[in-house]
């Protein structure tokens, strides 16, 4: 309890309120998951537990393929956006004038998803046209299809979307890091890379891993930009949205929604639990050492 003059019941009431808000926010999601386990689907008078809808989803080759594409995109987005976000955060931390830099980095967030998606679509179409013209002019075929809509363009769209989030998450963690520690490492004989690996990264690791989790979730949940830029393949989210718009919600759709909701919750929950266990362990070690010193 931070306010030592506060009443215990008010402290409990604040927590109860917080949990209530979270419960209300997540109630529709829990309800969808609940329905996804009902053999008779939404609105049925009888509830019979089943995992058949999940079996149907995972037995559908098209859905599994879309799940795979979703995973590939997520891996690609993490592998690109997180290192780029880390580099940008490092540069921002070392620059004197941080506000313009942060503003520029966050700019893509202020552009609506459909506008950004269609802008990228036009951009890639033109770029592809330029490369085809270049190929024809040079009499080679090498530049053909570089920016045709497909995995690469969808990935670039997701990187543009997730990079600002990765950047800001890492930058916040980095703000507690003291640059003197890098200089101290350099003064001990470390190269710039060794100083980053041994001294800086262990202290910003939590931010980098959080950024990975965040980008994964954002990538899984992204539909608009991907739908415009994906070309000939489908992501899980695109299939779900398409199903909802064209044939309405089926038991299969609820199972898909369940999968899409549970995955982020499991990822975030695991990070939280690991972080809590780790900080609890560190606190116990510190207390044990302090007790040993006090008893001397």
């Amino acid at each position: 309890m931070l306010d030592e003059h506060g009443k215990a019941w008010s402290y409990r009431a604040k927590w109860a309120y917080l949990l209530f808000v979270v419960f209300v926010l997540l109630l529709p999601v829990f309800y969808i998951i609940y329905i996804s386990f009902n053999e008779h689907g939404f609105g049925a008078a009888i509830y019979e537990f089943t995992v058949d809808w999940y079996r149907v989803v995972l037995g559908d080759r098209m859905l599994v393929a879309s799940l795979e594409w979703t995973a590939y995109l997520a891996v690609g987005a993490v592998a690109s956006a997180v290192p780029l976000g880390l580099l940008a955060a490092k540069f921002c931390k070392s620059s004197r004038n941080k506000v313009p830099f942060v503003t520029l980095m966050l700019m893509p967030l202020f552009v609506p998803a459909d506008i950004m998606g269609s802008s990228l679509l036009v951009f890639f179409k033109n770029l592809n046209g330029f490369f085809e013209w270049l190929s024809d002019s040079l009499g080679v075929t090498w530049f053909y299809g570089w920016f045709e809509l497909g995995f690469l363009t969808a990935l670039i769209g997701q990187i543009v979307y997730t990079l600002p989030y990765a950047f800001i998450v890492i930058l916040i963690t980095m703000s507690r890091y003291r640059v003197q520690q890098t200089e101290a490492a350099r003064s001990c004989g470390a190269t710039a890379w060794q100083a980053f690996r041994d001294v800086e990264f262990p202290q910003i690791r939590a931010g980098v891993f959080s950024a990975c989790a965040f980008v994964t979730i954002l990538s899984f949940n992204e539909a608009t930009r991907t739908a415009l830029l994906k070309g000939g393949f489908d992501t899980f989210q695109n299939v779900l949205v398409s199903q909802m718009l064209n044939i309405g919600m089926s038991g299969e759709s609820y199972a898909m929604a369940g999968i899409m909701s549970v995955i982020p919750m499991v990822v975030i929950g695991s990070i939280l639990i690991i972080t809590l266990i780790r900080s609890d362990r560190l606190e116990r070690v510190a207390r044990a050492k302090a007790a040993a010193v006090m008893s001397n």
């Binding site: 003291r178 003197q180 520690q181 200089e183 101290a184 490492a185 003064s187 001990c188 041994d198 001294v199 262990p202 202290q203």
Partner: peptide, 14 residues
């Protein structure tokens, strides 16, 4: 051929 002692915050906390 130098090493440096800083004003503060320069120990590796981890």
């Amino acid at each position: 051929p130098t090493s440096m002692v800083f004003q503060s915050y320069a120990l590796f906390p981890h």
